[in-house]
Design a protein around this nucleic acid. Structure first.
Lengths: 208, 208
DNA sequence: GTCTATACGCGGATAGAC
DNA sequence: GTCTATCCGCGTATAGAC
Protein backbone atom coordinates (compact mmCIF):
# COMPACT_ATOMS: atom_id res chain seq x y z
CA UNK A 1 0.00 0.00 0.00
CA UNK A 2 1.18 3.51 -0.80
CA UNK A 3 -0.05 5.07 2.45
CA UNK A 4 1.33 4.44 5.97
CA UNK A 5 -0.62 2.05 8.23
CA UNK A 6 -3.25 3.82 10.31
CA UNK A 7 -3.59 6.48 7.68
CA UNK A 8 -7.14 5.54 6.84
CA UNK A 9 -8.31 5.54 10.45
CA UNK A 10 -6.72 8.92 11.01
CA UNK A 11 -8.27 10.35 7.88
CA UNK A 12 -11.63 9.03 8.94
CA UNK A 13 -11.27 10.73 12.30
CA UNK A 14 -10.30 13.97 10.57
CA UNK A 15 -13.33 13.70 8.31
CA UNK A 16 -15.62 13.14 11.27
CA UNK A 17 -14.14 16.06 13.15
CA UNK A 18 -14.25 18.54 10.28
CA UNK A 19 -17.62 17.49 8.91
CA UNK A 20 -19.07 17.33 12.43
CA UNK A 21 -18.23 20.98 12.97
CA UNK A 22 -19.58 22.02 9.58
CA UNK A 23 -22.78 20.03 9.90
CA UNK A 24 -23.52 21.38 13.38
CA UNK A 25 -23.02 24.88 12.03
CA UNK A 26 -24.93 24.66 8.74
CA UNK A 27 -27.20 21.65 9.18
CA UNK A 28 -26.81 18.20 7.66
CA UNK A 29 -29.15 18.65 4.68
CA UNK A 30 -27.56 21.98 3.83
CA UNK A 31 -24.01 20.61 3.81
CA UNK A 32 -22.78 19.11 0.55
CA UNK A 33 -20.24 16.32 0.37
CA UNK A 34 -17.83 18.61 -1.46
CA UNK A 35 -17.86 21.16 1.35
CA UNK A 36 -17.56 18.49 4.03
CA UNK A 37 -14.54 16.86 2.45
CA UNK A 38 -12.90 20.15 1.56
CA UNK A 39 -13.07 21.11 5.23
CA UNK A 40 -11.01 18.00 5.97
CA UNK A 41 -8.56 18.71 3.15
CA UNK A 42 -9.66 15.93 0.80
CA UNK A 43 -11.95 15.65 -2.23
CA UNK A 44 -15.35 14.06 -2.60
CA UNK A 45 -13.84 10.99 -4.25
CA UNK A 46 -12.03 10.10 -1.03
CA UNK A 47 -15.23 10.45 0.93
CA UNK A 48 -16.70 7.27 -0.53
CA UNK A 49 -13.74 5.16 0.51
CA UNK A 50 -14.66 5.98 4.13
CA UNK A 51 -18.46 6.12 4.03
CA UNK A 52 -20.88 4.27 1.80
CA UNK A 53 -23.23 7.26 1.54
CA UNK A 54 -23.98 10.60 3.09
CA UNK A 55 -26.46 8.87 5.36
CA UNK A 56 -23.69 6.55 6.53
CA UNK A 57 -21.72 9.64 7.50
CA UNK A 58 -24.64 10.94 9.55
CA UNK A 59 -24.70 7.72 11.55
CA UNK A 60 -20.96 7.86 12.23
CA UNK A 61 -21.20 11.56 13.01
CA UNK A 62 -23.97 11.19 15.55
CA UNK A 63 -22.09 8.38 17.32
CA UNK A 64 -18.85 10.32 17.35
CA UNK A 65 -20.46 13.53 18.56
CA UNK A 66 -22.38 11.84 21.36
CA UNK A 67 -19.23 10.05 22.50
CA UNK A 68 -17.51 13.40 22.74
CA UNK A 69 -20.43 14.77 24.77
CA UNK A 70 -20.34 11.78 27.10
CA UNK A 71 -16.65 12.34 27.67
CA UNK A 72 -17.42 15.90 28.66
CA UNK A 73 -20.04 14.82 31.19
CA UNK A 74 -17.53 12.32 32.54
CA UNK A 75 -14.77 14.91 32.76
CA UNK A 76 -16.66 17.07 35.27
CA UNK A 77 -14.29 17.04 38.28
CA UNK A 78 -16.85 17.78 41.01
CA UNK A 79 -18.02 15.26 43.57
CA UNK A 80 -21.09 16.69 45.30
CA UNK A 81 -24.31 16.79 43.28
CA UNK A 82 -24.63 20.53 43.79
CA UNK A 83 -21.17 21.36 42.49
CA UNK A 84 -21.43 18.84 39.67
CA UNK A 85 -24.70 20.37 38.48
CA UNK A 86 -23.48 23.91 38.83
CA UNK A 87 -20.42 23.14 36.75
CA UNK A 88 -22.53 21.67 33.96
CA UNK A 89 -24.93 24.60 34.05
CA UNK A 90 -22.06 27.01 33.58
CA UNK A 91 -20.43 24.90 30.90
CA UNK A 92 -23.46 23.92 28.82
CA UNK A 93 -25.61 26.99 29.35
CA UNK A 94 -22.96 29.47 28.27
CA UNK A 95 -22.91 32.17 25.61
CA UNK A 96 -19.92 30.42 24.11
CA UNK A 97 -22.08 27.35 23.54
CA UNK A 98 -24.88 29.47 22.05
CA UNK A 99 -22.53 31.22 19.65
CA UNK A 100 -20.43 28.24 18.61
CA UNK A 101 -22.68 25.38 17.52
CA UNK A 102 -19.77 23.94 15.53
CA UNK A 103 -17.98 23.18 18.80
CA UNK A 104 -21.06 22.34 20.84
CA UNK A 105 -23.49 19.58 21.70
CA UNK A 106 -25.09 17.75 18.80
CA UNK A 107 -28.60 17.71 20.30
CA UNK A 108 -29.71 21.33 19.84
CA UNK A 109 -27.88 21.57 16.50
CA UNK A 110 -29.01 18.34 14.83
CA UNK A 111 -31.85 17.01 16.98
CA UNK A 112 -34.55 17.69 14.41
CA UNK A 113 -32.52 16.11 11.61
CA UNK A 114 -31.74 13.06 13.72
CA UNK A 115 -35.46 12.78 14.38
CA UNK A 116 -36.04 12.63 10.61
CA UNK A 117 -33.23 10.13 9.97
CA UNK A 118 -33.75 6.44 9.27
CA UNK A 119 -33.84 3.66 11.85
CA UNK A 120 -30.18 2.78 11.54
CA UNK A 121 -29.08 6.29 12.48
CA UNK A 122 -31.56 6.53 15.33
CA UNK A 123 -30.55 3.21 16.86
CA UNK A 124 -26.87 4.10 16.83
CA UNK A 125 -27.87 7.45 18.32
CA UNK A 126 -30.00 5.86 21.03
CA UNK A 127 -27.19 3.53 22.09
CA UNK A 128 -24.74 6.38 22.66
CA UNK A 129 -27.29 8.70 24.23
CA UNK A 130 -28.18 5.98 26.75
CA UNK A 131 -24.61 6.07 28.01
CA UNK A 132 -24.84 9.81 28.52
CA UNK A 133 -28.13 9.41 30.36
CA UNK A 134 -26.49 6.80 32.59
CA UNK A 135 -23.85 9.31 33.62
CA UNK A 136 -26.48 11.97 34.32
CA UNK A 137 -28.64 9.47 36.22
CA UNK A 138 -25.77 8.60 38.55
CA UNK A 139 -25.21 12.28 39.28
CA UNK A 140 -28.80 13.48 39.54
CA UNK A 141 -30.34 10.54 41.37
CA UNK A 142 -32.81 9.06 38.91
CA UNK A 143 -33.49 8.73 35.21
CA UNK A 144 -36.49 11.04 35.27
CA UNK A 145 -34.39 13.91 36.48
CA UNK A 146 -31.61 13.05 34.03
CA UNK A 147 -33.97 13.32 31.06
CA UNK A 148 -35.61 16.48 32.35
CA UNK A 149 -32.20 18.08 32.95
CA UNK A 150 -31.04 17.25 29.44
CA UNK A 151 -34.27 18.43 27.79
CA UNK A 152 -34.08 21.74 29.59
CA UNK A 153 -30.48 22.35 28.65
CA UNK A 154 -30.81 21.31 25.00
CA UNK A 155 -34.05 23.28 24.67
CA UNK A 156 -32.43 26.37 26.15
CA UNK A 157 -29.50 26.30 23.70
CA UNK A 158 -31.83 25.60 20.79
CA UNK A 159 -34.09 28.55 21.64
CA UNK A 160 -31.25 30.88 22.59
CA UNK A 161 -29.76 30.38 19.11
CA UNK A 162 -33.02 31.46 17.53
CA UNK A 163 -32.88 34.85 19.26
CA UNK A 164 -31.63 37.77 17.17
CA UNK A 165 -29.35 39.46 19.72
CA UNK A 166 -26.92 38.49 22.44
CA UNK A 167 -28.86 40.20 25.18
CA UNK A 168 -31.95 38.08 24.54
CA UNK A 169 -29.81 34.99 24.23
CA UNK A 170 -28.18 35.59 27.58
CA UNK A 171 -31.48 36.34 29.30
CA UNK A 172 -32.87 33.08 27.97
CA UNK A 173 -30.05 30.79 29.08
CA UNK A 174 -29.88 32.50 32.45
CA UNK A 175 -33.59 31.78 32.95
CA UNK A 176 -33.03 28.07 32.42
CA UNK A 177 -29.91 28.15 34.55
CA UNK A 178 -31.74 29.67 37.51
CA UNK A 179 -34.67 27.33 37.02
CA UNK A 180 -32.49 24.20 37.07
CA UNK A 181 -30.42 25.56 39.94
CA UNK A 182 -33.55 25.95 42.02
CA UNK A 183 -35.13 22.68 40.95
CA UNK A 184 -32.04 20.56 41.59
CA UNK A 185 -30.31 22.38 44.40
CA UNK A 186 -33.37 23.94 46.00
CA UNK A 187 -32.09 27.48 46.21
CA UNK A 188 -35.03 29.83 46.05
CA UNK A 189 -32.62 32.67 46.84
CA UNK A 190 -30.53 31.93 43.73
CA UNK A 191 -32.01 34.84 41.81
CA UNK A 192 -30.81 37.36 44.35
CA UNK A 193 -27.19 36.23 44.53
CA UNK A 194 -26.53 37.03 40.88
CA UNK A 195 -23.01 36.08 39.85
CA UNK A 196 -22.04 34.23 43.00
CA UNK A 197 -22.79 30.84 41.47
CA UNK A 198 -19.57 30.59 39.50
CA UNK A 199 -17.29 32.04 42.12
CA UNK A 200 -17.08 28.99 44.38
CA UNK A 201 -16.55 26.38 41.71
CA UNK A 202 -13.66 25.36 39.54
CA UNK A 203 -14.28 27.02 36.20
CA UNK A 204 -15.35 24.90 33.25
CA UNK A 205 -13.23 24.57 30.12
CA UNK A 206 -13.39 27.60 27.78
CA UNK A 207 -15.27 25.89 24.93
CA UNK A 208 -18.93 24.77 25.06
CA UNK B 1 -58.93 40.42 -13.21
CA UNK B 2 -59.70 36.82 -13.99
CA UNK B 3 -59.72 35.67 -10.36
CA UNK B 4 -62.30 36.58 -7.68
CA UNK B 5 -61.29 39.24 -5.12
CA UNK B 6 -59.62 37.77 -2.07
CA UNK B 7 -58.39 34.88 -4.14
CA UNK B 8 -54.76 35.80 -3.69
CA UNK B 9 -54.97 36.17 0.06
CA UNK B 10 -56.71 32.84 0.33
CA UNK B 11 -54.14 31.14 -1.86
CA UNK B 12 -51.38 32.60 0.22
CA UNK B 13 -52.98 31.21 3.34
CA UNK B 14 -53.29 27.81 1.70
CA UNK B 15 -49.66 27.94 0.68
CA UNK B 16 -48.60 28.81 4.21
CA UNK B 17 -50.70 26.05 5.69
CA UNK B 18 -49.59 23.31 3.30
CA UNK B 19 -45.94 24.29 3.18
CA UNK B 20 -45.89 24.81 6.94
CA UNK B 21 -46.92 21.20 7.48
CA UNK B 22 -44.44 19.87 4.94
CA UNK B 23 -41.55 21.95 6.22
CA UNK B 24 -42.17 20.93 9.84
CA UNK B 25 -42.20 17.32 8.75
CA UNK B 26 -39.19 17.26 6.38
CA UNK B 27 -37.21 20.34 7.33
CA UNK B 28 -36.94 23.62 5.45
CA UNK B 29 -33.69 22.94 3.59
CA UNK B 30 -34.92 19.50 2.55
CA UNK B 31 -38.19 20.82 1.08
CA UNK B 32 -38.09 21.97 -2.52
CA UNK B 33 -40.31 24.72 -3.89
CA UNK B 34 -41.94 22.21 -6.25
CA UNK B 35 -42.99 19.94 -3.38
CA UNK B 36 -44.21 22.85 -1.27
CA UNK B 37 -46.41 24.28 -4.00
CA UNK B 38 -47.65 20.87 -5.12
CA UNK B 39 -48.86 20.26 -1.57
CA UNK B 40 -50.99 23.39 -1.93
CA UNK B 41 -52.25 22.39 -5.38
CA UNK B 42 -50.32 24.97 -7.40
CA UNK B 43 -47.08 25.02 -9.41
CA UNK B 44 -43.75 26.62 -8.65
CA UNK B 45 -44.52 29.50 -11.01
CA UNK B 46 -47.36 30.62 -8.76
CA UNK B 47 -45.11 30.51 -5.74
CA UNK B 48 -43.16 33.57 -6.85
CA UNK B 49 -46.27 35.70 -7.16
CA UNK B 50 -46.74 35.26 -3.39
CA UNK B 51 -43.17 35.17 -2.11
CA UNK B 52 -40.07 36.85 -3.46
CA UNK B 53 -37.85 33.89 -2.54
CA UNK B 54 -37.77 30.71 -0.53
CA UNK B 55 -36.26 32.70 2.31
CA UNK B 56 -39.22 35.06 2.16
CA UNK B 57 -41.48 32.04 2.63
CA UNK B 58 -39.53 31.00 5.72
CA UNK B 59 -40.14 34.38 7.28
CA UNK B 60 -43.88 34.24 6.56
CA UNK B 61 -44.00 30.64 7.72
CA UNK B 62 -42.35 31.31 11.05
CA UNK B 63 -44.70 34.21 11.72
CA UNK B 64 -47.76 32.25 10.76
CA UNK B 65 -46.76 29.19 12.78
CA UNK B 66 -45.97 31.17 15.90
CA UNK B 67 -49.29 33.01 15.65
CA UNK B 68 -51.05 29.66 15.56
CA UNK B 69 -49.10 28.56 18.63
CA UNK B 70 -49.97 31.76 20.46
CA UNK B 71 -53.62 31.18 19.71
CA UNK B 72 -53.33 27.75 21.25
CA UNK B 73 -51.81 29.14 24.43
CA UNK B 74 -54.60 31.70 24.52
CA UNK B 75 -57.30 29.07 23.98
CA UNK B 76 -56.49 27.23 27.20
CA UNK B 77 -59.80 27.51 29.12
CA UNK B 78 -58.44 27.09 32.66
CA UNK B 79 -58.22 29.87 35.20
CA UNK B 80 -56.03 28.68 38.06
CA UNK B 81 -52.31 28.43 37.38
CA UNK B 82 -52.25 24.77 38.35
CA UNK B 83 -55.01 23.76 35.95
CA UNK B 84 -53.69 25.99 33.19
CA UNK B 85 -50.24 24.42 33.42
CA UNK B 86 -51.59 20.89 33.65
CA UNK B 87 -53.65 21.41 30.53
CA UNK B 88 -50.62 22.63 28.57
CA UNK B 89 -48.47 19.78 29.83
CA UNK B 90 -51.02 17.26 28.58
CA UNK B 91 -51.50 19.08 25.29
CA UNK B 92 -47.92 19.92 24.38
CA UNK B 93 -46.16 16.94 25.95
CA UNK B 94 -48.29 14.33 24.21
CA UNK B 95 -47.41 11.37 22.00
CA UNK B 96 -49.60 12.91 19.34
CA UNK B 97 -47.32 15.96 19.31
CA UNK B 98 -44.23 13.75 19.17
CA UNK B 99 -45.55 11.73 16.25
CA UNK B 100 -47.07 14.56 14.24
CA UNK B 101 -44.54 17.35 13.77
CA UNK B 102 -46.49 18.54 10.71
CA UNK B 103 -49.35 19.57 13.02
CA UNK B 104 -47.22 20.67 15.95
CA UNK B 105 -45.21 23.54 17.36
CA UNK B 106 -42.61 25.11 15.10
CA UNK B 107 -39.90 25.35 17.77
CA UNK B 108 -38.78 21.73 18.09
CA UNK B 109 -39.27 21.13 14.36
CA UNK B 110 -37.51 24.19 12.92
CA UNK B 111 -35.65 25.78 15.81
CA UNK B 112 -32.21 24.91 14.49
CA UNK B 113 -33.05 26.17 11.00
CA UNK B 114 -34.49 29.40 12.39
CA UNK B 115 -31.25 29.80 14.33
CA UNK B 116 -29.35 29.61 11.02
CA UNK B 117 -31.68 31.98 9.18
CA UNK B 118 -30.88 35.60 8.37
CA UNK B 119 -31.69 38.61 10.53
CA UNK B 120 -34.97 39.40 8.82
CA UNK B 121 -36.39 35.97 9.62
CA UNK B 122 -35.12 36.04 13.18
CA UNK B 123 -36.55 39.47 13.89
CA UNK B 124 -40.00 38.52 12.63
CA UNK B 125 -39.66 35.37 14.68
CA UNK B 126 -38.65 37.23 17.83
CA UNK B 127 -41.61 39.61 17.55
CA UNK B 128 -44.16 36.80 17.46
CA UNK B 129 -42.40 34.68 20.05
CA UNK B 130 -42.43 37.63 22.45
CA UNK B 131 -46.22 37.61 22.31
CA UNK B 132 -46.28 33.95 23.24
CA UNK B 133 -43.88 34.58 26.10
CA UNK B 134 -46.18 37.36 27.32
CA UNK B 135 -49.05 34.90 27.55
CA UNK B 136 -46.91 32.39 29.42
CA UNK B 137 -45.55 35.10 31.71
CA UNK B 138 -49.06 36.13 32.74
CA UNK B 139 -49.91 32.53 33.58
CA UNK B 140 -46.69 31.43 35.24
CA UNK B 141 -45.88 34.57 37.22
CA UNK B 142 -42.64 35.85 35.67
CA UNK B 143 -40.65 35.83 32.46
CA UNK B 144 -37.93 33.60 33.85
CA UNK B 145 -40.38 30.83 34.49
CA UNK B 146 -42.05 31.38 31.12
CA UNK B 147 -38.77 30.87 29.26
CA UNK B 148 -37.78 27.88 31.36
CA UNK B 149 -41.19 26.28 30.83
CA UNK B 150 -40.97 26.73 27.07
CA UNK B 151 -37.39 25.48 26.84
CA UNK B 152 -38.27 22.34 28.76
CA UNK B 153 -41.30 21.57 26.61
CA UNK B 154 -39.63 22.27 23.27
CA UNK B 155 -36.53 20.34 24.34
CA UNK B 156 -38.65 17.38 25.41
CA UNK B 157 -40.47 17.16 22.07
CA UNK B 158 -37.22 17.61 20.16
CA UNK B 159 -35.49 14.80 22.06
CA UNK B 160 -38.52 12.52 22.12
CA UNK B 161 -38.63 12.64 18.32
CA UNK B 162 -35.02 11.49 18.15
CA UNK B 163 -35.87 8.27 20.04
CA UNK B 164 -36.32 5.16 17.91
CA UNK B 165 -39.39 3.66 19.60
CA UNK B 166 -42.63 4.86 21.14
CA UNK B 167 -41.86 3.44 24.55
CA UNK B 168 -38.71 5.54 24.90
CA UNK B 169 -40.54 8.56 23.51
CA UNK B 170 -43.30 8.25 26.09
CA UNK B 171 -40.87 7.74 28.95
CA UNK B 172 -39.03 10.89 27.92
CA UNK B 173 -42.01 13.22 27.69
CA UNK B 174 -43.45 11.85 30.92
CA UNK B 175 -40.17 12.67 32.66
CA UNK B 176 -40.42 16.29 31.61
CA UNK B 177 -44.11 16.37 32.45
CA UNK B 178 -43.52 15.19 36.01
CA UNK B 179 -40.57 17.52 36.39
CA UNK B 180 -42.54 20.60 35.34
CA UNK B 181 -45.54 19.50 37.37
CA UNK B 182 -43.40 19.37 40.49
CA UNK B 183 -41.49 22.54 39.76
CA UNK B 184 -44.56 24.67 39.00
CA UNK B 185 -47.23 23.11 41.15
CA UNK B 186 -44.98 21.84 43.91
CA UNK B 187 -46.26 18.30 44.02
CA UNK B 188 -43.49 16.05 45.18
CA UNK B 189 -46.06 13.25 45.36
CA UNK B 190 -46.87 13.61 41.65
CA UNK B 191 -44.86 10.54 40.69
CA UNK B 192 -46.96 8.28 42.89
CA UNK B 193 -50.37 9.36 41.61
CA UNK B 194 -49.66 8.20 38.07
CA UNK B 195 -52.58 8.93 35.75
CA UNK B 196 -54.60 11.10 38.10
CA UNK B 197 -53.30 14.31 36.57
CA UNK B 198 -55.57 14.30 33.54
CA UNK B 199 -58.69 13.07 35.28
CA UNK B 200 -59.69 16.33 36.95
CA UNK B 201 -59.14 18.65 33.99
CA UNK B 202 -61.00 19.37 30.84
CA UNK B 203 -59.19 17.38 28.14
CA UNK B 204 -57.08 19.22 25.58
CA UNK B 205 -57.87 19.16 21.87
CA UNK B 206 -56.84 15.94 20.10
CA UNK B 207 -54.05 17.45 17.97
CA UNK B 208 -50.71 18.71 19.29
C1' DG C 1 -6.42 5.64 -0.89
C1' DT C 2 -7.00 9.65 -3.29
C1' DC C 3 -7.38 12.19 -7.25
C1' DT C 4 -9.97 14.26 -11.61
C1' DA C 5 -13.76 13.95 -14.48
C1' DT C 6 -18.29 13.12 -15.12
C1' DA C 7 -23.21 11.31 -15.03
C1' DC C 8 -27.63 12.70 -13.80
C1' DG C 9 -31.25 14.61 -11.04
C1' DC C 10 -33.13 18.16 -8.33
C1' DG C 11 -32.37 22.65 -6.34
C1' DG C 12 -34.12 27.86 -6.82
C1' DA C 13 -35.57 31.12 -9.87
C1' DT C 14 -37.27 33.43 -14.35
C1' DA C 15 -39.81 34.19 -19.13
C1' DG C 16 -43.65 34.32 -21.69
C1' DA C 17 -48.32 32.35 -22.99
C1' DC C 18 -53.07 32.49 -21.42
C1' DG D 1 -52.52 34.97 -11.08
C1' DT D 2 -51.23 30.78 -12.74
C1' DC D 3 -49.46 27.87 -16.03
C1' DT D 4 -45.55 25.45 -18.88
C1' DA D 5 -40.97 25.53 -20.25
C1' DT D 6 -36.46 26.46 -19.26
C1' DC D 7 -31.86 28.22 -17.38
C1' DC D 8 -28.12 27.08 -14.59
C1' DG D 9 -25.83 25.64 -10.49
C1' DC D 10 -25.16 22.32 -7.01
C1' DG D 11 -26.59 17.93 -5.10
C1' DT D 12 -25.03 12.72 -4.56
C1' DA D 13 -22.64 9.23 -6.42
C1' DT D 14 -19.52 6.61 -9.65
C1' DA D 15 -15.46 5.46 -13.08
C1' DG D 16 -10.94 5.21 -14.03
C1' DA D 17 -6.11 7.13 -13.71
C1' DC D 18 -2.24 7.24 -10.54
Amino acid sequence: MRYPPGHKEERRRELLKASGALVKERGFAASGVDALTEAAGVTSGAFYSHFTSKNDLLKALVESELRASNERWAANPHETAEDWIGYELDRYLSMSHVRHPEAGCVLPALGAEIARADGEVKEAYARELAKGIDILTRRLGDKDRAWAFLCQMAGAILLARTMPDQKSQLALIESSKRFLQEAFNGRSEAASMKKASTAKRKSPAPRQ
